[in-house]
Computed example of a mutant assay.
Amino acid sequence: MKRWHRVSIGSMVIAVGLVCAGALVVSRSHVPPEAIASSVTRTPELMERAWHLPVAATFQRRVDWQSNGSRCGPAAVANAYRSLGEAATTEGKVLAGTWSCWTGVCMMGLTLDELAEVAQSRTSRKVTILRDLGETQFLEHLRRSNDPGRRYIVNFDRAPIFGAGSGHHSPIGGYFEAEDLVFVLDVNFDFQPWLVERKRLFDAVNTFDGDKKRGLLVIE
């Protein structure tokens, strides 16, 4: 019993340490509100039109915010599945049965590959990673993001758009080709949904997370 007691205490100490480390990682992602407001488009007329895009409309003007700064990936998947009428509609349901984020914090956040594994475990739909895309390929997929039968989740670095921050996942609500603007349904409450020029989002996606490029996750 004493040995098990020592192991249990040791495990708890490690878990607390991981959570604290995760909190430190989250704190480094802070972007001032004024930087957010000046970096993206949120004019009332465009936002109203954006919510009427074919895919954005299935979200019913609702985004369930990530529970902490490290769980954007599970939150993005949960929101995408909810819009498709899938059963996994919360972070908890998305993560159930996986070892991902078992401490409550996704250490350093989930990579695109890790998020794909989590997403595939909760659905019979096809989940595909799209990585190393050129600008032309990226544009083609943005056009397809208006297809109600597909959901795209974008993995990008906040810094090229907001001047600060780190890696993030959020669903794409659609694309305005005439204005060349992408509707990103940001799952972080501090940011909330926004529109951004395609080239700026491409530059934010065309970055490295470790030794691999960021990219898109498509559920179809």
Rank of each mutant, 00 (worst) to 15 (best):
G69M: 04
G69P: 07
S70C: 03
S70A: 12
S70I: 01
S70E: 12
R71M: 10
C72Y: 00
C72E: 01
C72M: 07
G73Y: 00
G73V: 01
G73K: 00
A75Y: 00
A75L: 04
A76H: 02
V77K: 03
V77H: 06
V77T: 09
A78S: 01
N79C: 10
N79D: 12
N79H: 09
N79L: 09
N79Y: 03
A80P: 13
A80T: 13
Y81F: 15
Y81R: 06
R82N: 12
R82Q: 11
R82T: 12
R82L: 11
S83Q: 07
L84N: 08
L84E: 09
L84M: 15
L84P: 08
L84S: 07
L84R: 13
L84V: 06
G85L: 08
E86F: 03
E86L: 12
E86Q: 13
A87T: 15
A87R: 15
A88K: 02
T89K: 15
T89N: 15
E91H: 04
G92K: 14
G92D: 15
K93E: 15
K93Q: 14
V94M: 05
V94T: 05
L95Q: 01
A96I: 05
A96D: 11
G97S: 06
G97M: 07
G97Y: 02
G97Q: 12
T98A: 02
T98F: 06
T98R: 10
T98Y: 04
T98L: 05
W99S: 12
W99Q: 12
C101G: 04
C101A: 01
W102K: 08
T103D: 09
